[in-house]
């Protein structure tokens, strides 16, 4: 009995040790980034060879942050990225969930073929369609405050619209909807609900987990956009954060400023993740589909 308790304790200890090691491995780059952002370049380079790199020691100040703000319009970049990302995530959740709904619950001609084609797009890497997409975007019409214009380059819409619908998100929703009890949908139909009402009043309130998953995945993709905005946005006023990183790799690389900039642009991601993590858990707890 005693021995089995010891074994259990040892196993638990080893398990936690392993988990802590993994957590530390993932946390170290972040800690390094934040700590370095407060150090002057010389100290930063000196510290990087030893454990001091991860500790708040030496000559700490906010200088890197002030200088980073002077070097680049960081506020504009963060605003652009957050705007493009949030708008795309919201539109994507709506469009992809309605598409998933139509693929799962509604009967229509060509449904299977259309779904197969959408699934096939999953295996096409973005790089292969980037050039055709660029040509297309450069010639697309748009009706805005200036009337009809041609070409979408240098705008928010060129960063948003091509990414609203994607195969993976539609697939995620369709798969999740397939696992919802079909009788709930049928009961709502018999009770007189239209498809739109079923989507809004039954399916969406039960889709917290998949909404959170799809939102996180989309947020990460959009916030980390680099290649596409680099191709389609030349004007500073529309540039997102990742492209903004270029400002710090010009003549003389100031590593402290790079770290300050990276720390700043990480804040929205962390905030979004923490917010959704709460929503995710709440939605799981309240739906109680099981039972």
């Amino acid at each position: 009995m005693m021995q089995s308790n010891d074994n259990h304790g040892l196993r638990l200890f080893l398990r936690y040790l392993l988990l802590v090691l993994i957590a530390v491995m993932f946390a170290f780059p972040l800690v390094f980034m934040v700590m370095s952002s407060f150090k002057p370049d010389q100290q930063l380079l000196l510290d990087s060879g030893n454990v001091r790199a991860f500790l708040p020691v030496g000559d700490l100040s906010f200088n890197n942050y002030f200088e980073a703000f002077e070097r680049a319009p960081i506020g504009v970049f963060i605003f652009n990225s957050v705007l493009v990302t949030v708008v795309t995530v919201v539109l994507s959740l709506f469009l992809c969930s309605t598409a998933g709904f139509a693929f799962t619950f509604m009967e229509w001609r060509g449904r299977k073929l259309a779904f197969t084609i959408i699934l096939a797009t999953l295996i096409v890497p973005f790089e292969t369609i980037a050039i055709p997409l660029l040509l297309l975007a450069s010639k697309m019409p748009w009706i805005g405050f200036d009337g009809l214009t041609w070409g979408w380059l240098n705008s928010y819409r060129v960063q948003i619209i091509p990414f609203i619908a994607d195969g993976l998100t539609i697939y995620l929703f369709a798969q999740y909807f397939k696992d919802l009890p079909g009788e709930l949908i049928e009961a709502a139909r018999v009770e007189g609900a239209s498809w739109w009402q079923i989507y809004r009043k039954i399916v969406m309130p039960l889709s917290g987990p998949v909404l959170a998953t799809a939102a996180i995945l989309k947020f990460l993709v959009m916030y980390n956009q680099y290649l596409w905005p680099l191709m389609v946005v030349q004007q500073e006023e529309y540039r997102p954060v990742m492209v903004g990183l270029q400002y710090f790799f010009q003549l003389n690389i100031a590593w402290g400023e790079v770290m300050a900039y990276l720390s700043l642009i990480t804040i929205p991601v962390l905030a979004f993740y923490l917010y959704l993590q709460k929503a995710f858990i709440a939605s799981l707890a309240s739906t109680g589909v099981k039972g």
Binding site: P181, E183, L184, E186, A187, A188, R189, V190, E191, G192, A193, S194, I202, P205, L206, S286, T287, G288, V289, G291
Partner: peptide, 30 residues
């Protein structure tokens, strides 16, 4: 005709009550 236009109500084997609504909201759904 779609189900809603047939003037029928149905009780399912699995009950099919909406898990995110209270009993009151479930009963009042239609």
């Amino acid at each position: 005709l779609p189900p809603k236009d047939r003037g029928v109500a149905m009780v399912f084997q699995s009950y099919a009550i909406f898990p995110h609504m209270t009993v009151r909201e479930n009963v009042a759904f239609g």
